[in-house]
Design a binder for these strands. Structure first.
Lengths: 158, 158
DNA sequence: ACACGACGGTCAGCCTATCTGACCATTGTT
DNA sequence: AACAATGGTCAGATAGGCTGACCGTCGTGT
């Protein structure tokens, strides 16, 4: 049990993926787009997602989420559409350009994971994923889907 | 191979440790101290470490590292001492208060990892650590110790 | 022995991401 | 109908990160 803590080890690997994805999509011409925008964008669902949900998922305040969505919108990756089920809310949806970007990003992720499979062996990568998934049960504040009516979440972030 | 990417899974767990540590040390009275300061401070060695090395380890520019060290110094966690072996350099060293903080932080880390051992079982946690350590060989740009004379690192930062 | 490139570090200026606090409109519950 | 809760925005502040320019010291090659 020497060397960096498990948390640091995760940090190293995780940051590596992030960097790889950012570099690769930048090389493809998506050279605006910051890390924060990407982290938020990654949480947008097929049918669109409310800004508040994005904020929770990305662990930022709704103000910050709004700010980032503004930029994604100005850059043409997403658009805000009225939520038909609630006049207060608006759905953040991908545009065609946004969907292209998402596809490209996922492609890079797959490529990096393939490298990992080469290095560790496919079964051991699978084991890693299983362990991390199991760990999520006690580390993810939003475990098992977006908790619509959560007793966990306080007001904004606190 | 469904669900979040492996990178995201790591992000979730890693962020959890970070938050736990920050909250716990804040509760102990170390309520100044930001995340960025902590990330840098975590890289300071027993004998003191140069600002440039800290910058590399924490993946920020040396300017940013200097800025963070300033704050840690003003808060009384570290002090800068001349490096006896190089008149250009200065060693960032922990003060007594800094060492106390470090001990406290490591204690929390141990506690969190103990929770993980409870959840996964000790051998499986060890497996997780092994896999992550192995992954580090292909994801850590500064693999095998601080590369004093690295051919990897360009001028400042990519 | 010394010139010169590499390195450790700082200063200055800028921008992004984040926060808190206040506020508005709609919803849904009582 | 009143009112708390919810989705979202506006305004203002600050931290943390970047680039570029610069200074002093080190170390190597000739």
């Amino acid at each position: 049990m020497s060397g960096p803590s498990t948390g640091v080890l995760m940090f190293i690997a995780q940051r590596h993926v992030e960097m790889r994805v950012m570099e690769a999509v930048a090389a493809l011409g998506y050279d605006d787009l910051t890390l924060a925008q990407a982290r938020l964008g990654a949480r947008i669902g097929e049918e669109g997602t409310r800004a508040t949900e994005l904020a929770e998922a990305a662990q930022v305040t709704k103000q910050t989420a709004g700010y980032l969505v503004d930029q994604l919108e100005r850059a043409g990756y997403v658009e805000r559409r009225p939520d038909p089920t609630d006049a207060r809310a608006r759905l953040v949806c991908f545009t065609e350009r946004g969907r292209d970007l998402q596809r490209a990003a996922r492609e890079v992720e797959r490529r990096v994971e393939a490298e990992w499979a080469d290095h560790l062996g496919p079964e051991r990568l699978e084991t890693l994923r299983e362990l991390l998934t199991e760990l999520r049960e006690i580390t993810d504040p939003w475990w098992e889907g977006p908790p619509r009516a959560a007793e966990l979440s306080g007001a904004q972030r606190g």
